[in-house]
């Protein structure tokens, strides 16, 4: 019987075991989250800190890896007047930090269906019909400043407005659809949805891999059927 090495993880704060989390021997820092003062180890994220301090929290908790965009927070660091936007699961505690969780915003008012775009010649026209505000960008930079992934959001919107959808989409590779830029935009452009639209039309109209198409064609003819061996 091997030694159960897994047990050595008992101090892992990803664990759901609060008592184990309290065993962490670390200098605690004091932070304020949604107006409540909390003392917790600095190696914890803002979400882990809430759990550590005994506050329940379900809303705004998601993947805990920074890819789902659920845990939107406003952060003000000690000795600073600047408020920045970040993802709660990716932000570790610092002494004197003030944090506020933001409710996830209502969905964008832009709707579209890729199948209603007749062909790739019409994408630009359709884009301006679906996202009429995109050309109104006043370069306030709110989107770029709010992006927790440092995406060049504003530049992406400008490229999409010019019909350069592939280039625009490339800028949004890391986008987790946290909607911070949507919240920040005074023109209601919904820049992240502009980015995603750009990416989707690129695949929908231009991804035509010959290796995949050949395989589908061969299978359409009834070849390459799987033989299930019965034993």
């Amino acid at each position: 019987m091997p030694k159960r090495v897994g047990l050595e993880y008992i101090n892992n704060p990803q664990f759901t075991n609060i008592d184990a989390m309290e065993n962490l021997i670390e200098q605690l820092v004091t932070v304020t989250i949604n107006g409540k003062e909390i003392k917790a180890p600095p190696s914890l994220s803002t979400i882990q800190a809430l759990w550590y301090a005994g506050y329940p929290r379900v809303q705004s908790v998601g993947c805990l890896e920074g890819v789902c965009g659920s845990c939107r927070i406003l952060v003000r660091r000690a000795e600073s007047t600047e408020v920045t936007m970040a993802l709660g699961c990716q932000t570790l505690l610092e002494e004197g930090m003030e944090v506020n969780f933001l409710v996830f915003p209502t969905p964008t008012h832009h709707t579209y269906n890729l199948e209603e775009i007749p062909n790739s010649w019409e994408v630009q026209t359709e884009f301006h019909r679906i996202f009429p505000e995109a050309v109104n960008c006043r370069s306030c930079n709110g989107c770029n400043k709010s992006c927790p992934k440092d995406i060049q959001v504003k530049e992406g919107v400008a490229l999409a407005s010019k019909g350069k959808f592939q280039e625009a989409g490339e800028l949004f590779v890391e986008c987790v659809m946290c909607n911070f830029c949507m919240t920040a935009c005074p023109e209601y452009i919904s820049p992240n949805h502009v980015g995603l639209f750009s990416r989707r039309v690129t695949a929908y109209f231009h991804t035509r891999p010959s290796n995949l198409i050949n395989r589908l064609e061969v299978m359409r003819k009834g070849e390459l059927k799987i033989e299930i061996d019965q034993d």
């Binding site: 890729l114 990416r199 695949a203």
Partner: peptide
């Protein structure tokens, strides 16, 4: 997936 707009 490509028809949904997914890139590879």
């Amino acid at each position: 997936l490509i028809q949904q707009g997914m890139q590879f």
